[in-house]
Amino acid sequence: MTEKALRPEKPLRLGTRRSKLAMAQSGQVADAVRELTGRPVELVEITTYGDTSREHLAQMGGTGVFVTALRDALLAGEVDFAVHSLKDLPTTQPDDLTLAAVPRREDPRDVLIARDGLTFEELPAGARVGTGSPRRMAQLNAYARSHGRTIETVPIRGNIDTRIGYVSGGELDAVVLAAAGLHRIGRIGEVTEFLSVDTVLPAPGQGALAVECAAVNVDLAAVLAELDDPYTRAAVTAERSLLAALEAGCSAPVGALADLLADGQVVNEMRLRGVVGTTDGSTLVQLSTTGPVPTSHGDAIALGRELASEMLAKGAAGLMGERAL
């Protein structure tokens, strides 16, 4: 047996943010890569600007604040690949990085965690509902208005434990979070209501992960591509194309969801829904379009651009300018 055969393979280094959620979802990807390659994978914790800043996401500008440090580490060769929450990625992909895989999406919905097990409709008048998302504020306030109710949306920051703590500690009546994150850290049982996407559209790409590596690392990219789910990639590409065509960042009050429509057992169409609104909920532009299931990256982009064009014609651009917290 040769010396090379006796020497253990060098571990693949996976760059991840330090939060409990990031570590959990990166750990899931690491397990999948270990199974694919038979190689050890070690997590390399990296602190991003979004993790250390005390500003709200919209005040930071949103775009790239959770991913830049990870991407810098990739390009510097400090890690071999990185895992992001796809909704955090800027819509323009750098030429020197490859989005090698978009694994199958987790539940994209938003959820309510409220005191005393309440649903949204059971919250008292003037209930204080915490969220750091202008998108959620716009849709929650619009939904309350449409039912003749009033709520107070309260801007909050922090990890999942911190946000749920605002409810258990009595500071807020409820918080709104992403179902995917709660699934991944094992706290989905605390949800008091899954919010219908007919009420609150998620952020573009919500529930999906992005597995990224340096473009020059073509062999690793080919291996990571085994984790890709083509339907998820098509859906999030359409959603992010809408976001890009609206010239909006990930902190803008834009919701989008692409889902597959089936005729019996045959999936034959994709529906893309989008919403833009003022954070007080007084005005929403909400539209949808349906087309054949995209068979190429370009088809998915075209679907998003088509809907964005219709939304801009209805005044969406003016609403995005009113997103301050």
Rank of each mutant, 00 (worst) to 15 (best):
D110I: 00
L97Q: 09
P202S: 07
A100F: 02
I156K: 08
T119E: 05
L307W: 05
E190M: 13
L224D: 07
V67C: 13
G277K: 00
A221V: 06
V254T: 09
K87R: 13
T91Q: 11
P40V: 10
A262Q: 13
A317Q: 14
V191S: 10
G148H: 08
E306C: 11
G62L: 01
R104W: 08
V218H: 15
T47G: 05
G207D: 02
V102N: 06
T37Y: 06
P94D: 03
A101D: 08
K20R: 14
V111H: 01
L177G: 03
A221I: 04
L284A: 06
R187M: 15
E322W: 05
D107W: 03
V44E: 11
N268C: 10
T150C: 10
A317E: 12
P124G: 09
V111M: 03
A180P: 00
A174M: 06
R305D: 10
R323C: 04
E247G: 12
G169I: 00
L319W: 02
L201T: 09
P40Y: 04
I160K: 09
E190W: 01
R149L: 14
L6A: 14
R13D: 02
G264Q: 10
Q93L: 12
I160L: 15
E3Q: 14
G304K: 04
L43T: 08
D219W: 03
D173V: 00
A142W: 00
V167E: 00
C250S: 09
F120T: 01
T237Q: 07
G298D: 15
L319K: 02
L303P: 09
A302V: 01
A252T: 11
A69Y: 04
D88I: 05
T150P: 00
V33R: 02
L182P: 06
G38K: 11
D161P: 06
E3L: 15
A317T: 12
V41R: 01
E269L: 11
E306H: 15
G62T: 09
I185Q: 07
L227E: 02
A210S: 09
A178Y: 00
L123Y: 07
G64N: 07
V154P: 13
R135L: 15
G126T: 13
D219F: 01
R136Y: 01
R115T: 01
P108G: 07
A69W: 01
T192E: 12
M320C: 02
D259H: 12
M23W: 06
H147E: 11
V79E: 00
V200N: 05
R323W: 06
V285P: 03
G130T: 04
P40T: 11
V111F: 00
V236S: 03
T192Y: 03
T150S: 14
A256D: 04
D116H: 03
A76P: 02
L201G: 09
I46K: 02
M1N: 12
R7Q: 12
L182H: 03
A235W: 04
S309D: 14
P124W: 11
D280T: 09
E193N: 06
L123E: 09
V29E: 03
Y49P: 08
H84G: 04
R163D: 06
L70F: 06
G61C: 03
E239G: 01
A256W: 00
G277I: 07
I160D: 07
D80P: 08
E152S: 15
N159A: 14
G186I: 08
L89D: 15
V285S: 05
D51M: 11
R145C: 10
R34V: 13
V276N: 02
